[in-house]
């Protein structure tokens, strides 16, 4: 069967191009909602998705079904930034201004894919990398990852994890990439603005989104958005952005929400080893660090259009025999 024969059949029954209904994501999945919002932020533009092993490659459906309505490449766990490097370079060779988006979970970002992310960030490849962080290896049964909060129960830490959460933003910011930001599903304006800012910039752009996971967090699916709101409100998940790895801007400050409001609605924190005092101290320490960085290296007030649009990059190394095409 000719693959290109069906491509012309464009569906009009749904306006959601990026992530369609009928997928296998759990009810109340934060990743599913995040993809809808990325779609809405891009205003109908169709990016190329590069997805490593994670929930976002399992839940679109097993072959021959996919929920992705845009070109999507499934890669091995560790290699999504490398594959995206190839995709984005071919786009540049062809002079196409189409964004390449890596959409990876915290396992593929914090743990397994860290080496290739570091490589792509160091080369400053033209990639938007979005990590949806549900603080757990979700689809493999809820094992701990280095994004899991200390004290949280997972299938491999039944009594609660001992180690602190890795500060992936600090790791990526240290690469001096053009843009790094955190995303919240309870702050829609901020979410859409950050995706659009990232779209207008060039180079390696990194974002991490707190993604409610009812199965892994042992919480009510309906609470997902409210839990993210509480996580931002109590200071556990700071909303900030860093330009060029040097200029900091904090987008939302703790609003006095009690930490217990976030913790008590999730079964994963009902462990004997959970240390409230240590968690509060860690939050205070994190905010002291962010405040000091913002005071020392401020990004300045936000302008109306955020940042000027970067000109499209010149085509790199055009080949003698014309643009690169598919097989």
């Amino acid at each position: 069967m000719n693959v290109t024969g069906v491509e012309e059949e464009v569906h009009s029954h749904t306006e959601h191009a990026l992530w369609r209904a009928g997928n296998g994501a759990c009810a109340g999945c934060g990743m599913s909602l995040g993809l809808q919002w990325v779609d809405q932020a891009l205003d109908g533009e169709k990016p190329t998705m590069v997805v490593p092993a994670c929930c976002a490659v399992v839940t679109p459906g097993s072959y021959p079904t996919t929920a992705f309505g845009v070109p999507a490449v499934a890669t091995t766990f560790a290699s999504s930034p490398s594959v995206a490097t190839g995709v984005s370079r071919v786009r540049q060779m062809n002079g196409e201004d189409i964004p390449t988006i890596c959409w990876a979970g915290d396992g593929g970002t914090y743990d397994i894919g860290l080496a290739t992310i570091s490589g792509a960030a160091e080369r400053n490849e033209d990639i938007i990398y979005i990590c949806y962080d549900n603080e757990i290896y979700g689809n493999t049964g809820g094992q701990r990852s280095s994004a899991t909060l200390p004290g949280a129960r997972t299938s491999t830490t039944p009594a609660g994890k001992h180690e602190p959460k890795k500060d992936i933003m600090a790791v990526l910011v240290a690469h001096r990439i053009p843009y790094a930001a955190t995303l919240s599903l309870a702050h829609r304006d901020d979410f859409l603005r950050k995706i659009r800012v990232a779209r207008r910039l060039r180079g390696f752009r990194f974002m991490v989104m707190l993604s409610p996971c009812p199965a892994g967090w042992k919480s009510d699916p309906a609470e997902g958005i409210d839990l993210v709101r509480a996580a931002v409100g109590c200071g556990l998940f700071p909303l900030y952005e860093v330009f060029d790895g040097r200029r900091y801007r904090i987008n939302a400050r703790p609003d006095g929400t009690a930490l217990e409001d976030y913790l008590s609605r999730q079964g994963r924190f009902r462990t004997p080893s959970f240390d409230h005092a240590a968690t509060r101290a860690a939050i205070a320490e994190q905010w002291a660090y962010l405040d000091a960085m913002e005071a020392a290296f401020p990004a300045g007030p936000r302008e109306g259009s955020d940042v000027p649009a970067a000109p499209p990059p010149p085509p790199i190394a055009p080949e003698a025999n014309g643009p690169v095409t598919g097989p």
């Binding site: 369609r20 296998g24 072959y63 079904t65 929920a67």
Partner: peptide
């Protein structure tokens, strides 16, 4: 390859 993008809507 899946030639029809987004065919999960039939699920």
């Amino acid at each position: 390859t899946i030639p029809e993008a987004g065919n999960s809507v039939y699920n």
